[in-house]
Nucleic acid binder design. Structure first.
Length: 800
RNA sequence: GGGCAAGUGGUGGAAUGGCAUACACGACAGACUUAAAAUCUGUUGGCUGCAAGGUCGUGAGGGUUCGACUCCCUCCUUGCCCACCA
């Protein structure tokens, strides 16, 4: 007979809700545990990725609760964003209605999985009670000069008709719709995340419970590099071109200088020269090109001569000034010194345009660097300096430092630290987001909305079509306002905030989600924060985690919290695949969690998804595997019908072995082997039977994984309290040590047999026993043992 | 081009210096059954052997070690992230 999962799961979900079993209480006498999974975008349906993410978090939360911690395990919705606008256009509804409907559907599905959330703390970022505090945070940043407005070339997605952050441009394409991204000049709001770059980099060292690859990704993104700025004075002018290089050792080989087409000096340099027209045409063409072609094609490097010359400060040589598309304004100073002999990009450009080249570093043995004519590619390796004045003969790594110091002393340049991290562009020309709380007054200029006037609410209706400009700009009653300073007529900012703003501090809001006076209650945050365990997808390794760390440091500077990192420990779970590919709508290989729940129940789904692979690796979906998980639960279920008065000692041993293994494995998120341990215990019980005590303990061990199932069995065993209150079992070490142990015998490292001996056997006696073992003697014959290695309790290796 | 993972039976995976393949899926066989399903019990890396056993075997090659899936070096393959980054 199969267990009735449908009835049982509904019954216990109702019980948990009615008795507020998972309510998190601020209990100063108890140690807390804050377990958080990345909150979802409410698309309406949960997918297997959610199931995996939230099952991992749920097992861990339930386990910590049974270990005696006061657990905070909240859930909410990252509810602003573009899909709601698209859906609204398609279905002729309001984004607000669509989003709230989706949240309701999604909650039903999450509850069906039996996740142990404290639903009283639920929040949605699209509610004004939440986004009011986005505006509050923005104003605090504005006051401190951390939110500022700047006109600049921005990444523009023509299809979404909105700006994109650098982080949202993937290989020149929009991260959302994959359209080629264009450049556009706009007035935009930025957050000065660069103000925190040192701390964001430095504090990575303390995150010892984060995956090393995430640390590496963040560190690369912040991108600190040491280098030198070098000043090239224009010939017959006092203008100076500043270039950035990490290879000061190659300065004597700089044979020309290249500017980015957008470089501010370009127009001035070419003015009135014969080359002006050609150069302008070139600049025009490059600016028309989307970033995609400038970045993707690494073959053609195009450029033109400006007609101007400048002077290499180290050797007074007069060299050409060029413009080329492969030099980017966004990086460094927007200008480079070209060292064709020792930089591959410069080398290719030089060959293309027949420019001069000089070797200044000799490769060992000189094979590669005999002469410029013979070189097939740039030599980027180490070697000895040549053609470098007084630095000739030095190893280039040493020369790099000496030359930089010398240039700094002589005023030819400056040693600088360069960062890759840019300020964060948060303006979006979208409706469904947090309005930026700013008013433009003809008299007073940019005026922040006063705190007491928050929230600036989103108007219910806006004519958004998905095309052109900010939809809020078309809502007259929203735009028209009075200046908070002078009470004259003024207009509101019509851009909204990027949704990453919303998710950069939601973990703090969960500490006191109903607080009406502050973004979060300082005392509550002091108790619950930081998050002890954070779980989510690797795709958020850079953006979301970096922004959250930035906000946390900002709150620390406001004096609202006394820690500087939000997430103590981080787990990044792997993707769910079907037939070796990521599950996605376009591939049509989606397995709907709800259909699995219908067929096998949530406990089976939870069990399978944990058993099929370790959390951090990819998981291959397998229909037969889910069948196996279901069979196992039924096999365990049947034990209750055949309980003995007293189980054998070996079953007790098996139980305590399982307790030890399951506990250790859950601590390390090795759920797959924890379940294997439970299966071994069940197999042992099928060999010689269980009694009530053994079975009870087994049910507690599996309760974080299959909670409904365990509650039902627990009640059947006569317990009146919920199993979520049952303390986690402790392994009895005395039952784990055996009287007799099996020792492996090796000869020259090869496995040749085993021997069973008392666990207290003396080393000498053990050696003799092994040498005299009949199966071993034939291998030794009369050869003397050169050496005998004994690993206590495990093995003996006889070397002959 | 740079960085980080990973590569083990028919399949998912286990073992992080000490019996390679735990646990499961699949397959095969037996018990129960009129029969099937379900359930229970076995067997299940390759080669060789009637058997006991032997021998090979963790992407390839080398090294360290009494002993290597595990550590080191070189290479190959796959995945992920970053990238005209000066």
């Amino acid at each position: 007979m199969l267990y009735n999962f449908k009835e049982i799961e509904e019954k216990w979900q109702r019980f948990w809700q009615e008795n507020s079993i998972f309510k998190a209480k601020h209990s100063p006498e108890k140690k807390k545990f804050y377990c958080l999974e990345m909150f979802p975008y409410p698309s309406g349906k949960i997918h297997m990725g959610h199931v995996r993410n939230y099952t991992i978090g749920d097992v861990y939360s339930r386990y910590q609760r049974q270990k005696g911690y006061e657990v905070l395990h909240p859930m909410g919705f990252d509810a602003f964003g573009q899909p709601a606008e698209n859906a609204a256009i398609k279905n002729k509804t309001k984004p607000d209605d669509w989003t709230h409907k989706c949240i309701e559907w999604m909650k039903v599905e999450l509850k069906k999985m039996g996740f142990s959330y404290d639903w009283e703390r639920e929040l949605s970022t699209c509610d004004s009670s939440y986004y009011k505090w986005n505006q509050w945070i923005f104003l605090k940043m504005f006051e401190r000069g951390l939110a500022y407005k700047k006109a600049s070339g921005v990444n523009w997605c023509p299809s979404c008709s909105t700006t994109l952050a650098n982080e949202e441009v993937i290989e020149g394409e929009c991260w959302r719709c994959h359209s080629p991204v264009e450049q556009k000049e706009l007035e935009q709001w930025y957050l000065k995340i660069t103000e925190y770059k040192e701390r964001l980099l430095e504090d990575l060292k303390q995150l010892d419970k984060w995956p090393p690859r995430v640390i590496a990704m963040q560190s690369n993104w912040i991108g600190k590099s040491q280098g030198t700025e070098i000043y090239f004075r224009l010939k017959d002018s006092d203008k100076v071109i500043t270039v950035f290089t990490t290879r000061a050792d190659t300065i004597f080989g700089a044979t020309y200088v290249v500017l980015a087409p957008e470089h501010p000096l370009v127009k001035e340099i070419i003015r009135g020269r014969p080359q002006e027209k050609e150069a302008l045409t070139f600049i025009e063409r490059v600016s028309q090109e989307s970033k995609i072609s400038r970045v993707k094609e690494d073959v053609k490097k195009e450029g033109v001569w400006t007609g101007a010359y400048c002077i290499n400060p180290v050797n007074r040589e007069v060299i050409l000034v060029w413009i080329a598309d492969y030099v980017l304004m966004e990086y460094g100073t927007g200008a480079i010194m070209a060292v064709p002999a020792h930089d591959q990009r410069d080398f290719l450009f030089t060959k293309e345009h027949n420019l001069p080249m000089r070797i200044v570093i000799k490769s060992p043995g000189h094979q590669v660097t005999r002469s410029p004519e013979e070189m097939r590619e740039a030599y980027e390796g180490d070697g000895l300096q040549v053609n470098s004045g007084e630095f000739d003969g030095l190893a280039n790594q040493e020369a790099k430092i000496k030359i930089a110091q010398w240039m700094e002393k002589e005023g030819m340049g400056k040693i600088v630290t360069h960062w890759r991290l840019r300020d964060w562009l948060i303006s979006r020309q979208r409706y469904w987001g947090t309005p930026i709380p700013i008013v433009y007054c003809p008299k007073c200029g940019i005026v922040p909305v006063p705190y007491e006037a928050l929230p600036v609410e989103l108007p219910e209706d806006a004519p958004f079509t998905g095309e052109g400009g900010s939809p809020l700009g078309k809502v007259k009653e929203f735009v028209d306002t009075v200046c908070p300073k002078c009470q004259e007529k003024a207009r509101r900012e019509t851009d909204t905030m990027a949704t990453f703003f919303d998710s950069s501090w939601y973990f703090l809001r969960f500490c006191s989600p109903q607080d009406e006076n502050n973004p979060f209650d300082v005392k509550e945050a002091k108790y619950w924060m930081p998050v002890d365990q954070y779980i989510g997808g690797i795709e958020h390794a850079i953006l979301h985690l970096l922004y959250s760390r930035f906000f946390t440091k900002f709150f620390q500077d406001l004096g609202m919290i006394d820690f500087h990192e939000p997430f103590k420990s981080l787990l990044t779970q792997g993707m769910v695949l079907k037939d070796g590919e990521v599950m996605s709508k376009s591939r049509g290989n989606i397995v709907d969690p709800d259909s699995i729940i219908q067929k096998y129940g949530a406990d089976t789904l939870r069990l399978f998804i944990l058993f099929a692979a370790p959390p951090e690796t990819e998981l291959e979906w397998d229909d037969r595997g889910i069948e196996g998980a279901f069979k196992f639960l039924n096999r365990l279920w049947r034990i209750q019908d055949n309980l003995k008065e007293k189980a054998d000692l070996q079953v007790y041993r098996a139980l305590h072995k399982a307790i030890k293994k399951v506990t250790a494995d859950i601590e390390e998120f090795k759920f797959n082997t924890a379940i294997a341990g439970l299966m071994e215990l069940v197999n042992a019980i099928y060999q010689s039977g269980a009694d009530k005590e053994v079975f009870s303990q087994l049910v507690v061990l599996i309760s974080p994984i299959a909670p409904h199932f365990s509650e039902e069995l627990w009640q059947g065993l006569g317990h009146s309290e919920s199993i979520t209150r049952a303390p986690w079992p402790r392994a009895d070490e005395s039952l784990l040590t055996e009287e007799n142990i099996t020792i492996v015998i090796q000869i020259n490292g090869k496995h040749r047999g085993t021997i069973v001996v008392s666990k207290d056997i003396a080393e000498e006696e053990l050696k003799q026993r092994c040498l005299n073992e009949p199966g071993i003697k034939k291998w030794i014959e009369d050869k003397p043992a050169k050496k005998i290695i004994v690993v206590p309790g495990k093995l003996v290796n006889i070397v002959i």
